[in-house]
Structures are given as C-alpha cells and as structure tokens.
Design a protein around this nucleic acid. Structure first.
Lengths: 241, 241
DNA sequence: CAGTGGTCTAGACCACTGC
DNA sequence: CAGTGGTCTAGACCACTGA
C-alpha cells in the first residue's frame, strides 16, 4: 500500500491510489469519493490531472460520474450477465429473474479442479452449493458453486431462507466480501451428472456450460461457479470493431 | 455532410467531422490523419479539444495513435474474431488459419431472410457463396455468405483462385468495399442441410451457429454470413465488470 | 534534429443537482 | 443558491519516432 513507482505518470499513480482505497473499502459501493477539487488539493495536482485519473477509473468500470452530484463507487451488476448469455423471457419479451432452490450445501476438502481455479493451497476447505434455478416451476439452469470456507463460513451455517435468489448481495451482507469483476468461459457439452437430473434432460443432451471465476476488489478469486443450461436457451450477441 | 448541431460540444462536432471524413475515405485505413496542431488550427479550436475528439475515436476503435508517429485510421482485424469463438489450434497451441474451399457461387434473387438481414428492397439480386473451411484437410467450419450483387459484382465473376482464404481483403481490392464493424449472434442448434454434409456430421448433431452482419464505414450492412461449426470446437471467454 | 503525441498545469465558464 | 462535474482554452515541458 502506498508504494508507487515514481516513473509512472501522475494521473496513473493517482488512479492506483484511488483504486487501492476503493479496494480497501475506504468508500463502499454506492458511496461518493471526494470531489475533483478536494482530490486535487489533497494530492497537490491540477484538477485536469484528477479528471484524467478518474476517467480511467470510469473506463475500467470502477466508478460512475454524475454531473452536479459527484463520483460514486460502482456496484457491478451481474444480473444482466445471465441475460447476456441465456434467453429467459416471458411471452411478452420481459426478462424474468429465475427463482432459486438450493439442493445441497456442504463443507469439504476442496477437490483438485476447484482448488486450482480458486488458487488455494491443496487441502483447503471449501463450501459447495448445488443450486437449481426455475422459471414458472421449470428448471432452466443448474449451478455448482464453490467458495473458500475461511472467508465464507456464514454461508454454510445461515438459514437458507435468508439467502435469497441472488448470492452476491448475501456474500456482501454476511461475509463482507464484494465481487468486483469476473471471467466467464462458455462451452457446449453433453450434459453429465448431477446436472442432467436437475434439468431433467436425457443423458448427453447438448448444454451450454458457463464457468465463472469471480474476483474481489483486491484481485483474488472469491467464487468459482459452473452453470449449466439447455443449449436451446442459449443466445449471445456481440459487436466487433 | 457538414450538418452539425450547434448545441453539441465542440469536441463532439469535431469527432463527427473526422469520422465522416474517414467514412468518405478522405484518409484510407492505415493512413495518418492530420496532426493535432493542424486540426486545431484548421478548426480554430484548442489542441486539448482536438485531443478529446481524437480520444473518443480511439475508444470507438476508429483510429490508433502512436507517440512520435501520428494518428492512423484503423483497419479492423476480423481474423481474431474466429479465434474468439472457436478453438482451432495445432497440438502446440498455435492458432492455424483454416484453408478455404468455395463449394458454390451464384447470383440469385435474394431470399426473404437474406433481404431482411441486408436491409434491401424485395427482389434485389444477391450473391451467395457456400464455403468450407478446413484444417489439415478436416472440415471445421461451413459458411453461407450473402452479398448485395450491385456492390459486389466482381466477386461473382472473378477467378476463384485469386480470392484467397480471407474475403474482406478481396472485397476491398476488387469492389472497393471496406468492412468497418460487425455484429455477431451465436446460438446452438442441431445441424441442418447443407451444413451437415459439408461438415460430415450426423443429422441434428449439436453445432454452433454464428450469424454475422458486417457493416461498412457508412453504417449500412455489406455482408450477411451464417457460419456453422461442431459444438465441441466452441469456446468463448469474456471478462465482466 | 524537427515533428509527433503524452503529460501536466491553471484557470474560465457552463449545466446540472439538490437544498 | 452553493457545489458538483463538463467543456474549453493556452501554454509548458517530456518522450518517442524517423530521417
């Protein structure tokens, strides 16, 4: 902390300092960071330099600016990521948030692939959640979720009915862990246990598998997740330049 | 052309003017646009304003800047788009550019979905290319490509062996049409004719279908393409914030 | 070496927000 | 209305490129 390379441009060093403070929860998501004038004064740089530093944070998605109101730490919205990949919508074209049903919750020694994905030492204890997501009672998504137990103990013991359909808010409220970014890898496979029964699909039906590794503000992995959906519900749109 | 809304910020109007000139091929891809100082003088604005206008063009992927050299019109590279979606690589992990074999080339009245995708009036003539792409003799990709005949007549008549493995350079060289951007939509389907035989897959095997609509610098659609690959070769990676 | 974009400053004025 | 970010200017100096 506070260690800066003097060769870097001023605005870069300022950006890094602000980013580190966001990572340290000096300001929490939704809160405003100091104004341009304040930052310029406290760091003894010109306002223009502060503006450039903040602009890079905006480009990186770490903060949002609103004219006349201030600059705010951004809370990433992952709800939309589901809809980027899968077409869950009602007959009128509206998105529906699938309900959530936890089928299994257990603590265990992390299996090898999980340990590797979460970058933990061999033998570390982890939490496994097996989750079914439904729309109008129909299973549309099956998820296996892995968390390092040390950071997420409350998730293992808390009442399931307090967890809600979205996990990330629960992570923040009960474990103080905030998801800042994620990587997803998408493949098409034949469905395998235990996802086949959860989705009530015949063996080896084509499914889309989304592997997501979620990171905290400090950059370390927080959660590894494998989600599985029938291939017919998959649709992805992208713009290329 | 030259029609600008006086309410827009200076740097926006400047951006639009430069973008329009790029679209009009005042400078072609790879060429340098005027320096910051020249643009500032010719438009009677400060250099800082020019910088901001150019920065937005950089963010949009229209130009590239190089310190000490200049600012250059960017040529989008679509070769990489293939590899974003499909894992074609040799045993050593290196990417391989698949060879290309044109199975059919014909001019015809545009079928309804093609006409709609390319936004042409009903009854317009189009060119259809059916293409097989192979790695080490194995078919890995099947493509159906549709072009408005009026703009792409040379593609219909030129010798096939002058076309090469990449179509976009051919479009530019023989038809003067430059692809500036594209949209892709990705779905998983059961393979259907004529792609099943081209890929030598059993009926209804799972395949990834990539529909690409490519646009020119003026914003209108130039090419519509449906590509089809066995689902097992599909892999997509994305970062989320 | 001259010419380019990159960094940084200092300040003016505008447009929007919320009290 | 005071306070915020947004636009715009004018100029200094630095770092890199290519002849």
């Amino acid at each position: 902390m506070g260690n800066v390379d003097q060769r870097l441009p001023l605005y870069q060093r300022l950006r890094d300092e602000i980013a580190a403070q966001i990572a340290s929860h000096v300001w929490r998501p939704g809160e405003a960071i100091p104004t341009e004038a304040e930052l310029a004064a406290s760091h003894s740089v010109a306002v223009g330099t502060v503006r450039k530093a903040i602009q890079t944070l905006v480009d990186e998605g770490l903060v949002e600016r609103f004219q006349g109101r201030g600059t705010f730490v951004r809370r990433p919205s992952f709800d939309s990521s589901l809809f980027r990949f899968l077409r869950f919508h009602g007959p009128e074209g509206r998105h529906e948030v699938p309900e959530s049903k936890i089928l299994d919750r257990s603590g265990l020694i992390g299996p090898d692939p999980v340990i590797k994905a979460l970058r933990l030492p061999t033998g570390t204890e982890v939490i496994r959640l097996l989750r079914q997501r439904l729309i109008k009672g129909w299973p549309v998504l099956a998820e296996e979720i892995w968390l390092p137990r040390a950071r997420f103990e409350p998730i293992l013991t808390m009442p399931l009915d307090e967890m809600g359909a979205l996990l990330y808010p629960a992570y923040e409220r009960f474990c103080g862990e905030i998801v800042a970014s994620a990587e997803e890898t998408l493949t098409v496979e034949g469905v395998a246990a235990p996802f086949d029964t959860i989705l009530s699909l015949p063996q080896a039906s084509p499914v889309v598998v989304i592997e997501r590794l979620a990171f905290g503000y400090h950059g370390g992995p927080l959660e590894w997740r494998r989600s599985c959906a029938p291939a017919s519900t998959f649709r992805y749109h992208i713009e290329i330049r």
